[in-house]
Design a binder for these strands. Sequence first.
RNA 1: UGGGGUAUAGCCAAGUGGUAAGGCAACGGGUUUUGAUCCCGUCAUUCGUUGGUUCGAGUCCAGCUACCCCAGCCA
Length: 555
Amino acid sequence: MAETDSRPTNFIRQIIDKDINDGLHTTIQTRFPPEPNGYLHIGHAKSICLNFGIAQDYHGQCNLRFDDTNPEKEDIDYVNSIQQDVNWLGFSWSGEVRYSSNYFDQLYAFAVELINKGLAYVDFSTQEQMRELRGTLKEPGKNSQYRDTSATENLALFEKMRNGEFKEGECLLRAKIDMSSPFMCMRDPALYRVRFAHHHQTGDKWCIYPMYDFTHCISDAIEGITHSLCTLEFQDNRRLYDWVLSNITIDSTPHQYEFSRLNLEYTVLSKRKLIQLVEDEQVSGWDDPRMPTVAGLRRRGYTSASIREFCKRIGVTKMDNMVEMSVLEACLREELNADAPRAMAVLEPLKLVIENYKGSEVESLKAANHPSNELMGAREVPFGREIFIEAEDFKEEANKKFKRLVLGKEVRLRNAYVIKAERVEKDQQGNITTVYCSYDKDTLGKDPADGRKVKGVIHWVSASHGVPAEIRLYDRLFKVPNPAAEQDFLGSINEQSLVVKQGIVEASLVDAPLSTPMQFERTGYFCKDQDSVANNLVFNRAVGLRDTWAKMNQS
RNA sequence: UGGGGUAUAGCCAAGUGGUAAGGCAACGGGUUUUGAUCCCGUCAUUCGUUGGUUCGAGUCCAGCUACCCCAGCCA
């Protein structure tokens, strides 16, 4: 797919344009800073496209930095999956992967500088005491009794913290700012806490870990980040970001700008909730094709270009938003309609016998791999006396709106002949087991010579050549547009989000490469799943075709 | 009167004092060996609301309203 040519315009790029114009920067440096505590989801993709996209368009650089200051929640598996997902999305970071933990020594030195300046102190209050002293949204807080400890003493205390002489929770280093600030985050925020935890990067070197607010701004400054982009909930934190940088000795002064996070209808995009889905086994894992994770979308059949296009279409603003799933789906359909090879597959097989077709004869018919792109070539599809058609493509009787096979009427078999349904065979319950037809041998590649109009076309697979396959049909994971707003979001899970069909696919699909989407004509875009084995092919439906017929019938 | 933010169509979103882009969705019609695609057409006399400034306001000013975020030793 040709991604929309025009460069995106948004308020952040306007700020950058102005900064460049004003001579504030000659080169732009951004960063994508995930905490390695889960898999990346499509909300991260928005941030990735923003940060890496700006670096590309402004000929700047974008770092990948793991914000790994909370070892208890983090894991090396996540740092690996995140790198893989960023690459898969089509982006390369500047230089080596960075870690906030790379800067622990420098961070410690800056904390010492704050202590020396009388701007940080070690507090032994309990969590409860601290909460009480913090005040409320409408009432100012009160100073801690430890607030006026001398710098010398604080220095010694902080060193003891570092040396493991205090227990977890016994004390913490706090910035000395203003307990009556209207910004809650400025009421003497925690800078360092004691955690005797093994860190995936630094091992057991540290037993004190810096907090996000202290770490992030300094890491940005160390890396020479010019524009530090994050989501709206950090707007208040910007005051602390600026406070830290203006009170330590460091050359670089990055600036933080906030944009609204992505919300997508019928799914959840908070790591906490996604972790819960995985841990509760509501899904098969982080890469379950119903998950809004990059890994899930990839397995489902989404291409990275379609995700990039989606991020371009939704834009970047400060407005709270809830984007409809149809936008994402349209991006995939648009790309795949142009690129994906076509094939025939029957999801719910119904046997059809062409009685006037010679018993054992097998014909090899030619089928275009794409209706409008001849460069994609054609393939041979075997045709014989017995085929499978889609059960819903046949009715014993129907009105004129039904453009498929009806008893006594004609229909075109895609890439093959016009057939006419003559009679049906049923089992004892009255279910149709076989449809018997006749075919018009003069209709291959042309309309009936006598001018008969055949309005419908249905797909099919040769019974003796088709290969059985498990076909997984996915639907939205939740029954409500905004599950996050529910009291218990797990209560609104859509039990029908996965429907498995035992279908028959054309033999050429046996060798289909993994995760390369193709169109099953008339049904949707599918890709082979990693669960496929030699005698059990598995296909995922990434997205269905637009279906105005289904829409007509539901209304 | 805690503070920080945001209001343009069903959903996103341009618009930066000169008379409301675009996409998705929806709805008509045409082509079609995919009820797909493609093509053509329709879809904001009005920008949360009330006033004000101006020849002229979605853009500037004032008031009001609604919604989101902040009281982790999470990020």
